[in-house]
Design a protein around this nucleic acid. Structure first.
Lengths: 224, 224
DNA sequence: AATTACATTACTGTCAACAGTTTTGAGAAA
DNA sequence: TTTCTCAAAACTGTTGACAGTAATGTAATT
C-alpha cells in the first residue's frame, strides 16, 4: 500500500476509540431501512455507550452516510440512480488525477503490489478463486493502492471518506453485471501498463475510461 | 447561483443552529496559532455554550480544518506548501469535471450570471472597483457558480466542504501574486467561452489550465 | 364510522458533573 | 543554578439528567 508519506490511515474518523467502525457496521448491517429514522438512544443502547459519543460519530457521517434534520434526527441517505452516477463522476475526476500522479510518484514496491493484485484478479476469473480477491473487495484494493501510490494524502482522504465509503454501503444491496470482472481486468492492465511506462497522460485517460465503464455497469445493474 | 436541483446549501455542516459558522469565525480570526492546542472549554466559554455542541462541531471539522489526537485535543491544521499543492491538485480534478458537466447542463441563467461576474472582474482590474468583486471573494464566486451550474450536488458539496473551505482559511494569511488578477480574467473568459459553445472537452481543459496557473501563483506567493 | 382535539409519549438538543489522562509548577536534591 | 520528583491543576472523554419539540394514541364530536 505504498509507504510514502504518513498516510493518516484516513477512513471517516479515526479519533478516539473504535466506535465509528462499530457504528457503521451496525448501521449498514441492514437493521435500518434506507429512509427510516435512526434513533440515537437505540444506537446507544445497542452499542453500549451513552448518547454523547453516538451524536459525535453521527455528526461525522453527516452529509455522507446520514442526513440530519433539526429536531427530527438522522436518516440513512438513500442511494438513488442520480446519486450513484454523481459518485462515479467524482471518482472519475479524482482517481484520474490519482493515476496521473501515481505515474509520476509511485515506487517500485507500489508497482509490484499492483502487479500482484492483477494476478489475484486473474485467478479469480479463471475459476480457482483460492481466496483474497473477492469481487468488490479486491477491486477496491486495486483502486486504493493506486490512490496511495499517488502520494497525495488529501486526494486519498477525500476518496476514502466521501466516495469509497458510500459505494461500499451501496454494494451491500446491489450485485454486479455478469461479464464485468473480465472487462475490468483488462482495463486494470491498461492502467498498470501506463504506470510502468511512467506516462501520466495515458494513466489518467486509462483510469477515466475504466471508471466510465464501471459507471455504466453499476447503473445498468441498478435496474434489475 | 443556478437554480438547478436542490442544492443542500452545503457548507460544512448545516445541522442544528448557526453554531458552526460562529465557531469557524472564532477559530479563523487568528486568535489561535496554526499548530497550537485549542481548548474546548475556552471555545465553549467564548461562544457561550456548553462543551457538548463544541465537541460535535469540532468533530465535524476533523481532518479538514482541525486535527484531533486522543486525549490531547484538537489543533488547527497548518497549511504548508505540500498541503496547498495537494488542494490545488484536487481542485483541478474536481473543477475540471465540473466545467465539463456545466458545458452539458448549465442553463441560460447560469451563463448570464457568469458573464456578469466576468464584467465585474474586468471593472476591478480597470481600477473603478465600485464594489462586489473583491479579489478572492469574487474569484470564489466565479468558481462556485460553475460548480453549481454543473448540476452535480455531490461535486459541489465535496468542493465546498473540503477544498474552498481550507483555501479560504489560507487566504487570510497569504496575499496574491501581482499580475494574477489580469491573467485570471482571460483564463476565466476562455472557460466561459467553452461553456457557451457547449464544448465539454474544451471547458474541462480550460478549467484545468486555469487552475494549474492558479496553483503556480499560489505556491509562488507562499515564499515571500 | 370518520374526524378532530388533546394529552401522553418519545426523542433531540443541551448542560453540568465525574473519571482518567496529560500538563504544569513547586520543592527537594545534586 | 540546574535537574529530578511528585503533587496540583487543567483538560479530554463520557455519563446521566433536564428542557423543548415532534410524533402517537385516545377520547370526544360530527
Amino acid at each position: 500500500m505504498s509507504e510514502g508519506k504518513r498516510d493518516t490511515d484516513s477512513a471517516t474518523g479515526q479519533s478516539p476509540d473504535g466506535l465509528l467502525p462499530r457504528l457503521l457496521e451496525t448501521i449498514s448491517s441492514g437493521h435500518f431501512a434506507p429512509g427510516q429514522r435512526i434513533s440515537e438512544s437505540e444506537l446507544a443502547r445497542q452499542l453500549g455507550v451513552s448518547r454523547g459519543p453516538i451524536r459525535e460519530a453521527l455528526g461525522r457521517l453527516e452529509g455522507r452516510v446520514v442526513e440530519r434534520r433539526p429536531n427530527l434526527g438522522v436518516r440513512l441517505i438513500e442511494m438513488d440512480r442520480e446519486k450513484l452516477e454523481e459518485l462515479f463522476r467524482v471518482r472519475e475526476a479524482l482517481e484520474g488525477m490519482a493515476a496521473r500522479l501515481a505515474a509520476e510518484n509511485s515506487t517500485n514496491t507500489d508497482l509490484q503490489r499492483l502487479t500482484g493484485l492483477l494476478e489475484q484478479h486473474e485467478r479469480v476469473i479463471q475459476g480457482d478463486a483460492q481466496g483474497g480477491y473477492l469481487q468488490g473487495i479486491g477491486d477496491e484494493d486495486f483502486h486504493v493502492s493506486i490512490v496511495s501510490a499517488s502520494g497525495c494524502g488529501t486526494l486519498k482522504r477525500i476518496l476514502m471518506d466521501e466516495v469509497y465509503f458510500q459505494l461500499r454501503l451501496h454494494r451491500r444491496r446491489s450485485g454486479t453485471q455478469p461479464g464485468r470482472a473480465r472487462a475490468a481486468l483488462s482495463e486494470h492492465r491498461a492502467i498498470v501498463d501506463a504506470l510502468y511506462a511512467r506516462n501520466p497522460e495515458r494513466a489518467e485517460i486509462a483510469m477515466r475510461e475504466h471508471l466510465r465503464s464501471a459507471r455504466f455497469s453499476a447503473l445498468g445493474a441498478l435496474e434489475e
